[in-house]
Design a protein around this nucleic acid. Structure first.
Length: 550
DNA sequence: AATAATCGCGCC
DNA sequence: AAAGGGCGCGATTATT
């Protein structure tokens, strides 16, 4: 596989083929405007992996010019991976401008210009970084796994850029109709919509607090306590347990106020342009390897507004998600044949009931979630001994991860992503818990266990993210092969959230897309777990609107 | 007046 | 019915 390193130099781009150790060969210099055509020509001439500092700094402009690339190495992302991996030698990654690479932030602004002023990336030397990373991969005893992870992470960066570029089809008129139906007509700025105003009145009347601002949790709490209600906070699930006339209107107020604040008319104005919602996806944005996002709250698009996500005329959405990804991944990474057997069918929890491990599906779910998250109390705590007896390898793996975290050790995912050191993070955690660090004290024990729950979940959540990355990467290439033309003319990814994808496709290709989604899932399972027999059943729906899926 | 922390809630 | 892990975001409140 040819590797071509791209770097900016003044207003030009310098491109050079690289030796296996990362050393660049003879270079080609070309004006930035000529880059897309040059990349397209090279891309059409055979397999090539583009190496660049950061996908967010290169790919949007290529996409604007109609150029799609098959694969890349995103040095920012792969450097972050390698520098925290227990499978790579830190000494080989140190020196030079390594600190600058660690500090490098992705570009999340809308300006796709190739050469922003004063970009810290321009002070970094990508050739030197590529040599360091190549050396670290070559020296690793598990270079295969790490290399797969690096490739998957970089492929995710391409998919993320393409998703932002294409955007999720969004019907502002549908969304506005939905808002008006629930909230009443859009009010002038600074006023409540009619339905919220009416509910606020009911809340004030029920609490005999005529000046109450229902948007202020502190004020609501005081008013509730003045009315003699035994509450310490104003969370919905707290209120639901209270018998009082204020509860129904207050809960309704909170539900609709939330919709207004998070996905109301202001959200539409800010985030929907030309029929598309374009969040910025940030691969590797979460320490576990999950993606983060920026803009519009893309990680929590409420079910309530999904009716507004509608395919273009003549197009369909293919919505797919994996059932119970994390326990399946746990079965695979621990090679727990009994848990894999329970996961053989569509519903892992039902499989556990069928195997006689637990009596009910609810018990299975509570027990598994407790194992993944570290639940110790109540129902999930009671399930653990039974799970540990029947699934010793799976439960052993997460228990070991928890113990390692409690000791302050680093844990890793299947492909070698390392957990953060509990140094600075530990202090933050303590602060989050409202505790002072007292070595040896009870408070510090609590923080230690909290860190253990984090590392317990890290190995599973992180490996789940790796499965999803491989799924996404393979699917991206399969979709490309289904059509003709540029990205938005072919079936293409428009949304990704941990274990769910949405593909926008010409309607006549939708069934083939559904098949590729399943095929990609099978590929991901083989990549991560080889021949270990493990199913990843998908729910796949071909729909007009996102809301019609599931 | 601007920034930071907190609360609460949406998603997986 | 939540718990236990991971997020982003807006309104309010506290701090500088």
């Amino acid at each position: 596989m040819d590797r071509v390193l791209l770097r900016r130099d003044g207003g030009d781009v310098v491109a050079a083929d690289c030796a296996p150790d990362g050393t660049p060969g003879p270079a080609t210099r070309l004006p930035a405007d000529d880059l897309p055509a040059w990349v397209a020509a090279r891309e059409g001439g055979g397999a090539v992996r583009w190496v660049w500092d950061d996908t967010t700094r290169w790919y949007p402009a290529l996409l604007d010019a109609g150029v799609r690339v098959e694969r890349c190495t995103d040095l920012r992302l792969t450097g972050a991976l390698l520098r925290r991996s227990p499978l790579a030698d830190p000494a080989l990654l140190a020196g030079g401008d390594a600190a600058g690479w660690v500090a490098l932030e992705p570009r999340t602004g809308g300006d796709p210009a190739l050469f922003p002023l004063e970009d810290p990336a321009d002070r970094l030397d990508p050739a030197a970084e590529l040599r360091r990373q190549s050396a670290a991969l070559a020296a690793s005893a598990h270079g295969g796994r790490l290399g797969l992870l690096a490739a998957a992470e970089s492929s995710g960066a391409l998919a993320a850029a393409e998703m932002t570029w294409a955007g999720l089809p969004w019907r502002a008129d549908e969304h506005a109709r939905l808002l008006t139906g629930l909230l009443g007509d859009r009010p002038p700025a600074g006023l409540r919509p009619p339905v919220l105003e009416r509910l606020a009145g009911e809340v004030r009347a029920a609490l005999r607090a005529p000046d109450l601002n229902p948007d202020s949790p502190a004020a609501v709490l005081r008013a509730l306590q003045t009315a003699g209600l035994p509450v310490e906070d104003t969370r919905s699930w707290t209120l639901e347990r209270i018998e009082h006339p204020v509860v129904p209107p207050l809960l309704e107020y909170k539900r609709l106020a939330r919709l207004l604040a998070a996905n109301g008319w202001a959200w539409l104005d800010t985030w929907v342009r030309d029929g598309r919602f374009r969040p910025v996806f940030l691969p590797g944005g979460v320490v576990t390897g999950r993606w983060a996002s920026h803009g519009g709250g893309a990680l929590s698009v409420p079910v309530q507004v999904r009716p507004a996500a509608v395919a273009d005329d003549g197009w369909s959405l293919v919505v797919a998600d994996v059932a119970q990804l994390e326990p399946r991944v746990l079965a695979g990474m621990s090679r727990d044949a009994a848990l894999a057997e329970a996961a053989r069918d569509r519903d892992l929890y039902a499989g556990m009931v069928a195997a006689g491990v637990v009596a009910t599906r609810a018990e299975a779910k509570v027990g598994v979630l407790g194992a993944l998250y570290g639940g110790t109390r109540g129902e999930s705590g009671r399930m653990m001994p039974r799970l540990a007896r029947r699934y010793p390898r799976a439960i052993g793996l997460v228990e070991d991860a928890a113990r390692a975290g409690e000791r302050g050790a680093v844990v890793q995912t299947l492909l070698g992503r390392g957990s953060p050191l509990p140094g600075a993070a530990w202090a933050e955690r303590l602060a989050d818990l409202g505790e002072a660090p007292e070595p040896g004290g009870r408070d510090s024990d609590r923080a230690r266990r909290a860190w253990g729950r984090f590392t317990r979940n890290f190995v599973v959540q992180g490996t789940g993210a790796e499965w999803a990355l491989c799924w996404l990467a393979d699917l991206r290439n399969r979709l490309w092969r289904l059509g003709e033309g540029s990205v938005h003319q072919r079936p293409h990814l428009v949304f990704f959230l941990h274990d769910e994808v949405v593909v926008h496709t010409p309607a006549d290709l939708a069934d083939r897309v559904a098949g590729e989604v399943r095929a990609a899932a099978a590929t991901a399972g083989r990549l991560l777990f080889g021949g270990f027999p493990l199913d990843f059943p998908l729910d796949v729906a071909v729909v007009r609107s996102w809301a019609d899926a599931g």
